[in-house]
Design a protein around this nucleic acid. Structure first.
Length: 629
DNA sequence: CTAGGGTTAG
């Protein structure tokens, strides 16, 4: 009866509403759930809830604001007798944008099909495909696709692009490609989505090929390719594309610069990173938390941790959420500044910035690198109990690393055996690394056997095992493992180090003699060896070089490790006191680590070495990793 | 009286 009255009231509107109706602006100004409920009550008593526009405004508030309540929105939607197409689409869209709820998009879509009115339009399919790509199965997606075909909407440009995106999200880039190739109507978005699909799978060559074939490319096309190269570890190529973009392409935006900075960070290209920083300040680029995070990360990875911290505090930290915090906590952790990392986390709690899983990975890493077992255990607990973040395999990995470094090998193994997910090669590798540090051959052997199960791709772990044998003087066994690596077709990547000098990179391979300054370099190395020995340095022959049986030769070979060449090159070509920054593709060996400590003292230089795993900041004879790595 | 698509850390 009441509803009927309202319906009569509603039907009395001739021109229902204009966009500046008081109630609409009231709805838009709601700041809390209470206010929304009051407005909702007003909508009901005036009958306006039956009008699509206020109903949609209400639903948008309920699904898009910070105090969103999807269950309330669903109730509101359910009580609308015959929702119009707009209302359906609004609900489908809202669910599609909320990954854990995107199955609800499909529920609504199905109910729409069931009552056969209103008929879905092209917008409906864009949203439903989005939902499917965001977490539903292939089966559902293809069912929806059939409906689109039946309604003759599949060929609509927006629908097609949604479809390409859906397949790309599932990693079915070949199917995405098929849709792309078949569609008559293509635009820049179609190309960019497909390129993004290849990039998502790490198929950068395919992505590049498409990119080259585009008649015109916009800032997204360029940014996607740069991000793609960063993702597969081709930082030099990423920076090359970035420079080409500056020369002939569109103006970079904050996405481009975020990726370019990531490339600088991982390539330890401080000069270029600084240049981008200046570029950001001078151009109209709007700072956002991810750009800021990559800036902090760049300075940290280039060894400028103090400056990273300065950038963080200069940028009025209250405004930003978790990303910049994570970047700086991670930066402190990789520089062995565990106290600072922990203090920053505590500051973060005071500022009421919610941490996420990455925060805890950074924090646990800090504990691990600082040998702070008690604190690490505490934070691991806190993560689930106070923040409801379920530990993932990376967090368990941090714990294995933490306990392993501290020599609690048995306990570290128990973590692996008792965690709720299946262990992967990385986590066993962490334990094996700990066995190496603590020279526990027995356990190392056992873990090595487990690791063999993973086989093929895991050359690195076999190498670790071989190294462990040789450090313990068990050369024959080490030889056997290395033979097996050779037989299985795996070749150890040759060591390669590079150094940036005035924006140009100089690369050195093990025993490299190709550089123009080779002669000078090797003379310098000889002289350096004498100086280091006088200062008390004793070469270590434990690891690697098993095929060389004469100790003298081993020593020679060790002195030619790529990082030594790069460091020598840096010492020769920079003025005294300039920090030297090296990036190496493999882990730094313990002899080079030892030698570099001496170099930093004898030559009075700060030396930052980024190896495959972490950063070493050498200063005055000691290293930030405190010899745990 | 209106809605739609692409790029961002460990």
């Amino acid at each position: 009866m009441w509803i009927l009255n309202i319906k009569r009231y509603y039907s009395s509107f001739k021109r229902p509403l204009n966009s500046n109706h008081q109630l609409l602006s009231l709805l838009d100004s709601c700041k809390s759930m209470d206010q929304i409920k009051q407005s909702h009550a007003l909508l009901i008593t005036t009958g306006l809830i039956l009008h699509p526009i206020p109903a949609i405004t209400l639903l948008k508030q309920l699904t898009g604001s910070t105090f969103a309540s999807f269950s309330y929105a669903q109730l509101v939607f359910d009580q609308i007798p015959t929702p119009d197409l707009f209302l359906y689409n609004t609900m489908i869209k809202a669910y599609a944008l909320t990954p854990p709820l995107c199955s609800k998009s499909l529920v609504i879509f199905r109910s729409m099909i069931r009552v056969s009115s209103p008929s879905p339009n092209r917008y409906t399919f864009v949203f439903v495909f989005k939902a499917c790509g965001n977490g539903l199965g292939v089966l559902e997606g293809e069912q929806v696709r059939v409906h689109a075909v039946k309604l003759g909407l599949e060929s609509n440009l927006f629908v097609t692009n949604g479809l390409i995106r859906m397949y790309a999200n599932w990693g079915m880039v070949d199917e995405a490609r098929r849709v792309f190739d078949w569609s008559v109507d293509k635009d820049l978005f179609s190309w960019n989505i497909l390129i993004g699909g290849y990039v998502g799978l790490g198929e950068i060559d395919q992505a590049r090929e498409l990119f080259e074939g585009m008649s015109d490319r916009d800032v997204v096309s360029w940014s996607t390719i740069i991000a793609g190269y960063v993702q597969v570890g081709c930082y030099v190529e990423a920076l090359d594309v970035f420079h080409e973009m500056l020369r002939i392409g569109p103006t970079p935006n904050e996405f481009t610069l975020t990726s370019a900075l990531a490339a600088c960070a991982n390539q330890v290209a401080l000069d270029q990173g600084r240049w981008i920083h200046v570029y950001i300040d001078k151009s109209e680029i709007m700072m956002n938390e991810k750009l800021l995070a990559s800036l902090i990360d760049m300075y940290a990875k280039c060894g400028e941790i103090e400056f990273a911290s300065k950038v963080f505090y200069n940028e009025c930290s209250q405004k930003w959420k978790v990303w910049p915090w994570n970047a700086l906590i991670g930066g402190f952790a990789m520089h062995g500044k565990s106290e600072e990392a922990i203090n920053l986390f505590e500051e973060m709690r005071i500022e009421k910035v919610s941490p996420n899983k990455v925060t805890f990975i950074a924090l646990l890493n800090a504990c691990s690198h600082g040998n702070m077992v008690k604190e690490g255990r505490g934070y691991f607990q806190l993560m689930a109990s106070s923040y409801g973040i379920e530990p993932e395999i990376e967090h368990y990995g941090c714990m294995v690393d933490l306990l392993g470094r501290a020599g609690l090998l048995k306990e570290a193994e128990d973590v692996i055996l008792n965690m709720p997910m299946a262990p992967d090669a990385v986590i066993w590798g962490a334990l094996l690394g700990a066995c190496r540090i603590h020279k526990d051959i027995e356990m190392g052997e056992r873990i090595g056997k487990v690791l063999k199960e993973f086989d093929s791709k895991l050359i690195g772990c076999h190498v670790l095992l071989a190294n462990m044998y040789s450090t313990s003087g068990r050369w024959n066994e080490a030889k056997v493992v290395r033979e097996r690596i050779k037989i299985s077709g795996g070749r150890k990547t040759p060591g390669c180090s590079s150094i940036e000098l005035n924006g140009v990179f100089h690369q050195f391979l093990v025993g490299d003699r190709s550089h123009p300054q080779t002669k000078q370099l090797y003379l310098f190395l000889d002289e350096m060896k004498t100086k280091l020995k006088n200062a008390g340095y004793v070469p270590e022959f434990g690891e690697l070089l098993l095929d060389i049986d004469d100790e003298e030769d081993r020593e020679t070979a060790l002195s030619k490790h790529s990082e030594k060449l790069a460091i020598a090159f840096g010492l020769i070509n920079t003025t005294p006191g300039t920090p030297i920054r090296i990036v190496k593709n493999l882990r730094v060996c313990s002899d080079c680590h030892q030698a570099t400590k001496f170099i930093s003292k004898v030559y009075e230089r700060e030396i930052v070495v980024r190896d495959r795993i972490r950063y070493h900041h050498f200063k005055d004879g000691s290293c930030s990793c405190k010899d745990y790595w």
